[in-house]
Design a protein around this nucleic acid. Structure first.
Lengths: 139, 139
DNA sequence: GGCAATCATGAGAACGATTCTCGTTATCAC
DNA sequence: GTGATAACGAGAATCGTTCTCATGATTGCC
């Protein structure tokens, strides 16, 4: 239950009440290697006997994404995927075959973006890079 | 009607029948400065007296995006935006305030991505960068 | 510890974007 | 032209997500 204690800490860190349901959702997400949708997460939790509503899963994931505890990715049209990530800024390399996700930690884009956006009279607030490809197993 | 002739050419170029509806949809999109949703495009065309169904707009945009004639962007959750773009690879700088889009033509990512993906045993098939910010007018 | 105020939950309805169905219409090759 | 095929339109269906509202848990205050 290591994961759960960690989840409680994260929730308290952003002043979100660590209710039973929220802890389960976050702990489950932390145990996922890849990104998942709210529905998948709900199904998985229900499958192992947890009693919690779909709306709660949506609310919790939305809340945590707002607080920056987790990331919401929109690489599949029509639905959002969620992922628990470390604190640092990074990007994702997603396999088109198996949806495996690799985190790219060393982002070298900032100087370039800074220059570009200034040229267009923009102030950059953020950027999102998603690289798709095929991993070794899927080729 | 310059735009329409151009649209016909583009449709024929990818072996898609240039029906009246498809030409109108593509010509309208080519006249848009920023990206639009299928619904907006449909409303706009209907507003000027064109008779065509919403499903046709969706079908056409989906088809053209598959063929690579137009781009589908997913920067608003829950809906897709479409945009007609030139041929060359590029990225977008989108204003969070007014949704104005600036094209960034000089992409400097390839060497870095090539190196990174090789390190993870991936073969890169594409990448998408979206930069968000605030333009001068919206600050 | 009890109690009121507040917050979170769950079930199902509602919603909005998109896709599907199917009868009708337009287009293309001959 | 004509017949085969592809595209269209209207509305129903679908799917992910959000909302509603009655119920249950938690917190601060006495």
């Amino acid at each position: 239950m290591e994961q759960r204690t960690l989840a409680v800490g994260l929730l308290e860190g952003v002043h979100v009440r660590p209710t039973r349901q929220r802890v389960r959702v976050l702990a489950e997400l932390m145990g996922e290697r890849d990104d998942v949708t709210a529905q998948e997460l709900h199904e998985r939790l229900r499958g192992r006997g947890e009693r919690l509503g779909l709306a709660t899963v949506y609310r919790t994931l939305g809340l945590l994404a707002d607080e920056g505890v987790i990331d919401a990715l929109s690489h599949r049209p029509g639905e959002l995927c969620y992922r628990w990530c470390g604190e640092e800024h990074h990007h994702h390399l997603v396999c088109s075959g198996c949806h495996r996700v690799v985190e790219l930690l060393d982002c070298e884009l900032d100087p370039w973006l800074e220059r570009i956006s200034r040229a267009h009279d923009f102030v950059t607030t953020g950027h999102r890079l998603e690289v798709s490809g095929l991993c070794g197993d899927c080729r």
